[in-house]
Design a protein around this nucleic acid. Structure first.
Lengths: 315, 315
DNA sequence: CCCTCCCATAAAAATAATTTATGACTTTCG
DNA sequence: CGAAAGTCATAAATTATTTTTATGGGAGGG
């Protein structure tokens, strides 16, 4: 490193322009400078480099070998800067960029399809999808590990902007051959005698279920067996181990295929909402804004079993 | 072009350093600046780019997408400059570079070998070889089309530095079955009755020949047939069309193989010299200097039929 | 031979970068 | 919970750098 850390772009530009125009004066004019300014740039450059960069002998103005090396380098730099400029313009216009999206586990049944749809519509924007449980997603959002999140109920621990994406129904599921299946109305009494399969305490669905059952039974106790994942619960219900309350979007396929049925419990399905969330203190990037507008414009059409139903925005 | 023409390397370096160190203060220390200086650089950079480059929300200091683009570009620029620096160091040390060498036609019998030898000894230096008649070479030298030239008799039309490379004998050649061949001594009388094959007026060899013959014959006239090239003359002499004076180096092979013989004319062979020449007003590049030293150190050993004979330098 | 154009240098002016001084905000630790 | 330490941004002042104006010395052209 002899000159590289002290040389300036102006010097290199001045030099390159002198070679292009063939004279100091012409270069100066083009650079909106006076001739002495460019002359000084050249001199400084030669001092820094430690060797002549111009060969003035014999009329013509030619670069020395060192000078040619500098011009070559300057060309590289100029194209790098031009590319950078161009790319930043794209980023600013939202025509390129990266959006890191987190979706809670329940969303795994529609999130991939949503990502695919978005990718098709916006090839320039890369969408990173993270699926995790609610806590992970909230933490990632708070730690700037993701830019936006899709979840039910916005987190209270963070200052966020949340927008409704569409309805999120919860149903009580049972196997098709369950005694309570096909009943036009399931009484609280009968329901509370069942065994309930549910996620651990703290899970959003668990909380919701307990609230519903407490309300229904007026505080009567009931039996809960905990399971690690919605998928496990689904399988266990089909196997006849008990019944469970789950997001309808989690069991959409099984309901449609008749592998599971939704019980006609009063107050069910519980209607919640899906939200698109980002931190309030961070302006979403242009690309993220493009994604947000895209998702909102779908109006819930990406949700299982939906073909676009009206929802109001803003939580 | 929005920011590319106004951004400075210092700004980009400051920004990159902040990201590397994780803080403005640490970056400032490393750059031998104070924190406010770097802080200002960042602000100016963001103004120029028109978008934030740093994301300060939430403790950590991360680049925005735009910032990442800038860092990527800065890396390109830094490596380009480092490479340039390295290469210039080589050029300055004479370990790399280009030497454009011009050699007069007569030299075509040894120049390629000389170039090959030099290439083997100095792989970093590229040697461009131009072979042309004396006028072309002199013109190219004056027009900076070549850096150095090998020729007999330095040109008077240019201010040059000339150094002797080795002896340059001229001989009078004839076919082996010529009546004057094998004579221990050829008289002027007999010689001047011959037909002389020669290059056009102005050719160095022609001038030399005429001077010799005039001196030998005391002004007596003789017959000259002009031919376009030394090669043609050689062939014509072998075919018996006449005799000719040529550089011994031009006919070295034919003499060795007995296809031609040198006549024993008084005063012959005329001893001239080969010179290595460059313009006096131009300092030879390091690479050219390396070439010059190389050639001089050979001490004429590259000339046909020579195995290194002493010559004084400096014309 | 003179005139003009071009370039380099020097001094002056303008501009830009940096430092010192200061205050606000955040994090850390008692 | 509050004090202390650290970090960063801003403003004003200083210092560096760049540029311009002014000037003189060649080189090419009429």
């Amino acid at each position: 490193m002899t000159f590289a850390r002290d040389v300036t772009l102006r010097q290199l530009r001045g030099f390159a322009e002198v070679l292009r125009r063939g004279s100091v004066a012409a270069a100066a004019e083009r650079l909106n400078l006076t001739a002495p300014a460019v002359s000084t740039q050249l001199k400084t450059l030669e001092t820094l480099v430690g060797a002549p960069v111009l060969d003035r002998t014999g009329g013509a103005l030619r670069p020395t070998e060192v000078g040619e090396e500098l011009v070559r380098t300057m060309r590289l730099i100029e194209t790098a800067l031009a590319r950078c400029d161009e790319r930043i313009a794209l980023l600013r216009a939202g025509a390129a960029g990266l959006v890191r999206l987190g979706v809670v586990s329940t969303g795994k049944y529609f999130a991939p399809g949503l990502v695919a749809r978005f990718n098709r519509a916006n090839p320039g924007i890369t969408l990173h999808l993270t699926i995790g449980n609610r806590d992970d997603i909230v933490e990632a959002l708070g730690a700037h590990g993701i830019d936006m999140a899709v979840m039910g109920r916005p987190p209270e621990s963070l200052e966020v902007v949340a927008r409704r994406l569409g309805p999120h129904p919860y149903v009580m599921i049972a196997p098709p051959d369950h005694p309570l299946a096909n009943r036009p109305m399931v009484e609280a009494e009968a329901l509370l005698s069942e065994t309930f399969l549910a996620r651990e305490l703290g899970s959003g669905t668990r909380t919701l279920m307990m609230r519903e059952l407490d309300q229904l039974g007026g505080g009567r106790s009931y039996r809960v067996v905990e399971m690690a994942s919605n998928e496990t619960i689904k399988q266990a219900v089909m196997a006849g181990l008990g019944i469970a309350m789950l997001s309808a979007h989690t069991v959409h396929t099984e309901l449609a295929e008749g592998k599971l049925v939704a019980l006609a419990v009063p107050g069910l399905p519980v209607m919640r909402h899906w939200f698109l969330i980002h931190l309030a203190d961070e302006e979403p990037s242009p690309a993220a804004t493009v994604f947000r507008d895209f998702v909102l414009s779908l109006d819930g059409a990406f949700l299982p079993g939906a073909a676009g139903q009206g929802t109001e925005n803003r939580a």
